[in-house]
Nucleic acid binder design. Structure first.
Lengths: 144, 144
DNA sequence: TTGACATATTTACAGATGTAAAGAATACTT
DNA sequence: AAGTATTCTTTACATCTGTAAATATGTCAA
C-alpha cells in the first residue's frame, strides 16, 4: 500500500484542471475542456475522466443538475498551494524553511522589485511576530 | 505520450532513495536498503528496483565493480531541490515568486530566528543585486 | 568442494495516471 | 417526430509507481 501524497497533492494534469475550475466554477466539464483546449488539447473524455477522478479524490465536487454535471472545487488555491509547498519542504528540504527560501532565491534572477517585495513581506511578518510576542500561538486565521 | 516532470522530478520514494545515496555514495544497493530499513522497511528487491529505475531516469548512475553494483547520484541536491521548487512555482503559483514566498510564510509558524535569517538572506541578495547593477545579467554561477 | 552468505536478476502484480474512442442518453431545432 | 447537437457513460490501454517473491549467481570460509 501507498500513502498518496496526503490531502491535496496534485499532479501536473490535475493542476491544470483545478486552475481552470477555480477560474470558472461552478462549471461543466465541457467548459473546462474548452478552457484547456489551447494549452492541453485534451479530448472531452480525457478532461472528464480526470475530473471524475478528482472528485473521487476530494479535490472537486460535482452535482447533477438535470442532465448536466456541475463541478466546483473542493479545495481552495491556498490549500492546494500549501500542500505543494509542504511536499517540497518535507522531501527536498527536510522541513528546513530557510534553506528552501535560499534555494528559491537562487532559482532564478530576481528583479529589484521582487526583492523589495520579499523584504517587505518578511519585515511585516517580523513586526507581527514581535507585536503578539507574549501570546501562546498555535491558532490564528488558519482556516484555509 | 506524457512529458515526465522534466529533468529531476522525484517521487516520494525516490526522494528517500536519493537522500540516502547522497549520504553514503558511492554505495551499493544493500547499503541503501539498510539505511532506509528504519523509516521505510523496504525489502532489498524493492530498493533495488527503485534504484535501477532511477538509473534509467538519470537520477543515479551505477557501475559494476567485480560482483557488485556501485551507485552514485547523478544529480546534486541543489539540482533536485531546484527542480522541485520549479515544479511548485510553475504549477501552484504560475511562476510568481512573491506569492510563493508569502504562502510559504503562512504555511507554518516561523520562529523569530527564522524570520531574521530570512530577512538577512534577502537583504544580502539585494546588496548583491545593487552592486552588480550595471551588468547584463543572465549568466552567473548557475552551473547546477 | 560444499555450504552458507551476499548480491544480483527476473518476473509479477495491483493501483495510479495520461489519454481517449465508442456508445448511450438527453435536449434542441425545425 | 425526426434529426442534430450536446453531454454523459463505459471501456480500454499503455506507462509509471510501489512493492516484492523467487531464483540465480558469485564469494568465502571450513
Amino acid at each position: 500500500m501507498k500513502s498518496p501524497r496526503q490531502p491535496p497533492e496534485l499532479t501536473e494534469a490535475e493542476w491544470a484542471i483545478i486552475k481552470a475550475v477555480w477560474k470558472r466554477e461552478p462549471c461543466a466539464a465541457p467548459d473546462i475542456q474548452e478552457e484547456l483546449a489551447g494549452q492541453k488539447g485534451w479530448a472531452y473524455s480525457t478532461v472528464r475522466t480526470l475530473m471524475d477522478r478528482m472528485v473521487r479524490k476530494g479535490y472537486l465536487v460535482s452535482e447533477k443538475i438535470r442532465h448536466m454535471d456541475l463541478y466546483r472545487s473542493a479545495v481552495t488555491p491556498k490549500q492546494a498551494q500549501k500542500a505543494e509547498l509542504l511536499y517540497a519542504l518535507k522531501h527536498a528540504f527536510d522541513n528546513a524553511l530557510t534553506p528552501m527560501v535560499q534555494r528559491l532565491l537562487e532559482t532564478r534572477e530576481l528583479s529589484p522589485t521582487e526583492l523589495e517585495e520579499l523584504e517587505t513581506l518578511i519585515r511585516e511578518r517580523r513586526k507581527q511576530a514581535a507585536a503578539k510576542k507574549p501570546e501562546r500561538r498555535q491558532d490564528h486565521e488558519h482556516l484555509d
